[in-house]
Structures are given as C-alpha cells and as structure tokens.
Computed example of a mutant assay.
Amino acid sequence: MLKIVVGGQIDKKEVAQLIEKHGEDKVEVSVKGDLEAAMAMKNGQADYYFGACNTGGGGALAMVIAMLGRPNCSTVSMPGNIMNEDKIREEVQSGKKAFGFTAQHKETVVPVIVDELLKLNQ
C-alpha cells in the first residue's frame, strides 16, 4: 500500500479524493499542513507528496523542497503551462517523490501521477 500525503495551500480535500479514486484500494491518503506533510516525508511516514497552490511550485512544494531537496520534487503544472502526460510519467519514473501543481490542473495531473506510481510500485 502506497502512503501518500497531501499538503499544499489549496484544494487538499479534493486532491485527496482524486488520489483515493484513482488509487482505488492501493493507496492510503492523509491530509496535513505543509510542515507536517513535509516532516512525514522526511521521516518515512509517507512515500509520496502531492500539493496544489496557485503557482504549482511555491505554496505547493516550498516546505517539502526544504526538507527533501529540489531534486526529489517536480512542478508538473503552472498557470498556463502543464506538462504533457509522457513528461509527467518520466518525472515519476525518475524517482521524484513530491509533486506540485496548480489547483485547476488537479483533475488532469493527479490521475496520471497515481497511475504511474501504481505501475512503479507493483
């Protein structure tokens, strides 16, 4: 079972619901404040981090970047710019552990990330 923590500044409940929907019974999702979510990642209490904000990288990823380092994090969407599906899958395959995106792109990016995480962790 994959343990996924949701942080970020906005739409945490909606992001968690999307992860649960697309992860079916293979994910365990918890919603936390940014610092608590980043600490869960650092301490090995969560496998992956998802966060949404208005920019996709600032409030969505700031704390987890500070805790895990930029190489472990990926901004998969920003205002007016969303990674294509193949690039998102590459980010997951490359070992990224934290994913930030704009809230308006959550319904596009979350299913792709979850699908690739499930493939990677079979």
Rank of each mutant, 00 (worst) to 15 (best):
M39L: 15
I65E: 13
L18M: 04
V76I: 14
A62D: 11
V29K: 06
G33T: 10
A52S: 11
K42H: 03
S74W: 03
E90Y: 02
I10P: 04
T102D: 06
K119Y: 00
V112I: 15
E107M: 08
V109M: 11
L120R: 13
T55G: 11
M41I: 14
I4H: 05
G44C: 06
E36F: 15
G33S: 15
S77L: 02
K87E: 09
Q17V: 05
A16I: 09
M67S: 12
S77Q: 04
I10H: 10
K96E: 01
S94E: 04
G57Y: 12
K42Y: 08
H105Q: 10
M78Q: 08
L35S: 11
K32D: 14
Y49D: 03
A98F: 01
C73V: 04
I113S: 06
M67T: 12
G100D: 04
K119F: 00
P71E: 12
F99T: 00
D25W: 14
A46V: 10
V114Y: 07
E85V: 03
K96M: 01
G23D: 10
P79F: 04
E28P: 02
N43K: 11
K106H: 01
K87P: 00
E14Y: 14
F101G: 03
T108M: 06
S30T: 14
V114A: 05
K32C: 15
C53N: 09
V110I: 15
V64F: 08
A46H: 03
T55A: 09
S94C: 03
G7F: 09
G58R: 08
T55N: 14
G57S: 13
G57K: 10
A37S: 13
K13H: 15
K87Y: 10
Q45H: 07
R89H: 00
R89Y: 00
S30C: 09
